[in-house]
Design a protein around this nucleic acid. Structure first.
Lengths: 220, 220
DNA sequence: GATAGTTTCATACAACTGTTTGAATTGCAA
DNA sequence: TTGCAATTCAAACAGTTGTATGAAACTATC
């Protein structure tokens, strides 16, 4: 019951501050000042600072994961249980990239928070990330169904590289912009997604079939 | 002058502790206890905690960078100013991967420290990383010479993806092992390097020439 | 062996952290 | 209104942090 107003205000303020300044130098006192609530409110409503961070991260994580699985499921249903590998990879990296890149001024606080979380990775967040493996396994399964002639090893490496490119591009987007002197346009999110998916697809299909047609050809 | 013994002991102890437990929860008191020196010694010899961390990181960084440039230069000289793209990529990701992967028990403290630095990225380290762009530009230059028909945009994206795969694999090596149930062997460093180089090469040469022969064919 | 410069040491300091406390206030039901 | 629970609040707490101090111990030079 109750208005929940304080709770909400703390969550919003914390997300904003963490997104802007990182976990390292944002204190509870900064948060409650920004939220215009009393210092003790954080411990009253959340138990501890770590639980506050965890709640923020979990909320955003399950939103992203749900989005990913929604795309994946739709693709597999349409393909009769077997989706093209590009579509699977698109479902894997699309939601994250779409959430975390794009014009900075229209990037949501939630997105900027998740970028921070991927850069700094404080203990409470690291604990949660470890539980993400089950979620990734679902994608590995879909990839195996899509490319039944590829070994598990190759599947996992492909999955790893796809996530690598997506996350690294998010983490180091500033550096890539500076390095390329603006030539790499990170605001064109769909182009970034297409590049990541394309390379990951090549990684998974090289020396086997054409990149375009995931097939069930010869075994290794 | 002087024996430098204290200085050295502090550096060694700090590197070991940071590598094992992360920057977050290693205090100066932990370090001086491990090094068997007085608390004030850190400030006396290094000025501040941040300067100690910075010194550790720059030492290791320039070692890695020197190694990378050595490989790159040798390759370009042998190729008469133009090295095959695979060899350039090998010089880019090889030293880091070789330093940070491999059987855990024979992984150097320096390597484990650098992994930490890439995961946690505290302020003094972040400041130094920003100066790494000049170093990367040298590789971009070599890649451009190797693939003169590719646009700068593609070069930078290829560079970005190569670093992405290498660093992410290091950062998340534990997770990949767990996810693949040990099927992906991260101790076989040369296999990992080959995989990263192979995928990055494909990314840079796809739709242009065969992956094997970096050539000077038709323009885009 | 006295002197000057460097290095070590125990200790204190000042600031900041997340958390707790217990009293005041609020909101709502009877 | 009365009573009771939920919430807010100011204040203090307990712990830790990096840093500074000034005296002691050492080292090498003359």
């Amino acid at each position: 019951m109750a208005s929940d107003h304080t709770r909400t205000a703390i969550l919003a303020a914390a997300e904003r501050l963490y997104a802007d300044r990182g976990f390292g130098d944002v204190t509870l006192r900064d948060i409650v000042a920004e939220a215009n609530v009393n210092l003790a409110a954080v411990n009253y409503h959340f138990g501890s600072k770590d639980e506050l961070i965890a709640e923020l991260f979990v909320t955003r994580s399950i939103a992203t994961n749900r989005e990913r699985l929604r795309e994946l499921k739709a693709a597999e249903e349409q393909g009769g249980g077997r989706a093209p590998i590009e579509v699977i990879l698109h479902a894997l990296v699309g939601p994250t990239l779409r959430g975390c890149l794009g014009p900075e001024n229209q990037r949501s606080t939630a997105a900027r928070f998740m970028i921070r979380a991927s850069i700094e990775s404080v203990p409470p967040i690291r604990r949660i990330k470890n539980r993400e493996i089950d979620h990734l396994r679902k994608f590995a399964g879909a990839m195996r169904r899509s490319l039944p002639d590829r070994s598990d090893i190759d599947i996992y490496w492909g999955l790893n590289f796809a996530l690598a490119m997506a996350h690294h591009t998010i983490r180091e987007s500033e550096r890539l912009t500076k390095l390329s002197e603006g030539k790499c346009d990170l605001d064109d999110v769909e182009d970034v997604v297409a590049r990541v998916v394309s390379v990951a697809t090549m990684a998974l299909t090289a020396g086997r079939t054409e990149a375009k047609a995931p097939s069930r050809l010869a075994a290794r």
